[in-house]
Each structure stands twice: as structure tokens, then as C-alpha cells.
Amino acid sequence: MNVTKDRFGILVVDDHPVMRDGLRAVVEQEPDMEITGEASDGKEAVEQFRKLLPDVMLIDLQMPVMDGLQAITTIRSEFPDATIIVLTTFPGDARVIRAFTLGATSYLLKTARREEIIKAIRSALAGRHIVAPEVAQEIASHAGREGLTDREIVVLSLVAQGRSNRQIAEALNITEDTVKARMKSIMAKLGAEDRTHAVMIAVKRGFLDSLP
């Protein structure tokens, strides 16, 4: 999928122009790499990937129109061998695990140094995975703990919208007792003190990024 015979093509996806410019400056210092395309949201990322077939895509997760996780899902469904590096601000363990499950190759934070980004690109090209130390630590801190089920995530997403138990029950066509039971399970799994605390923890860990 190389764009030219002697260079690897990199697609950069981020809704902040300054970040894209910074990545371009980092990547194009390498004699065997070049930025062959940019995108400012997930929808553009999918379109650009189809058009350019880059060797590697660097992508943020939180973007307008279509987020990074949705873009990764779409691209990997069409291009199973796509090499995708997540470069984002958020290290939440559920978010990271979901990104890898959907097909991400590596996961870096935007605080990564230039050499770390280049190392991740070269490792990805060689078929190796790279995970930022802070991200690995976040995953390890929750290792062995039971995650939220799809149904619990849906309930919590409605709580995050400010809906009452009755409203949630009506929206999901379940009883209020079922809603209460799921909230009790959610708070126990997250170690939350109340509904608001549960939402805060879930947002931080990435459970509410993209609903199943």
C-alpha cells in the first residue's frame, strides 16, 4: 500500500489543525515517511482511507460527525489489514480495550514525544503493537474487574442525559425495578457513590464513548 516506492504514506486524522500540522512536522522529518492525506473527522477519515490506502493512519477518537471508534470500525470492515494508531488525549481502560477490539494497532496519548510517535509508526509497520505507559498503567489498575454490560452502558447513557428511572424504564420498555437493579450493579462495578459519580467514572474510563 506504499504511496511511493521508497516512502510510507501516513494519513493524519484530527479535528484540530494545529495537531495535524504538528504531526506533519514530526513525520516528514523521516526520509522514508510522508503525510499523504489529512482528515478532520471520522467520516473524512473513511473517505480518505478509501482514496489513499495509506500504510498507517494516525487517528484521534473524539471528533465531530463520526468519532474515531466508528471510523476504525468502518475502515477495518473494508480493509482488515489496515494499520491504525490511536493518538488521543484520553487513556480510559474501557476506551483503550474497545479501540483494540475494533482493530487499532497501537494506542498513544497526545503527550507522546516525537520519538515515541515515530517508534509507534515503525513498530506498527512491522506488525508490532505499542501502548503508551500511562495507558498500560490504566488498564492494569482495572485488571480483573468486571466491566459493564451493553445493557448497563445503555442505562447509564440515559442517566447521563438526566433521565429518571421511570423515563429510562419507558425508553427501554423495562420495569423501574430492572432499572434500579442495573444501576445497583453499575455502581458496584464502578465503585461509585451515586448516579452522578457513576457517570463521571464511566466517562473517564471510556464506557460511554460509543454505544454498542
Rank of each mutant, 00 (worst) to 15 (best):
A181R: 12
E146V: 06
V155F: 12
F8Y: 14
T196E: 15
L211R: 13
V46Y: 13
V96T: 01
Q161K: 15
A181K: 11
Y107V: 01
L52R: 12
V46E: 10
R182P: 01
E146P: 00
R20E: 14
V203F: 07
E170V: 13
D15V: 11
P17K: 14
I130F: 02
T101W: 05
V154Q: 15
N165H: 15
I117T: 02
R95F: 04
M66G: 04
D67N: 15
P17S: 13
R7V: 04
D67P: 06
T74N: 13
V86F: 07
V199N: 09
V131M: 01
V131Y: 00
P212W: 05
A192M: 07
D60P: 12
S210K: 11
R166C: 01
L23Y: 08
A126D: 07
A132K: 01
D194A: 06
R114Q: 12
D177K: 03
L156E: 11
Q29K: 15
V3H: 11
T83L: 09
M200P: 07
D55E: 11
D21N: 14
M63C: 05
D6H: 12
A192L: 06
I84G: 09
G22T: 05
E193Y: 07
D6L: 10
A104D: 01
E193A: 15
I130N: 03
M1V: 04
S123N: 08
E115T: 06
A136M: 04
K189A: 00
T196M: 14
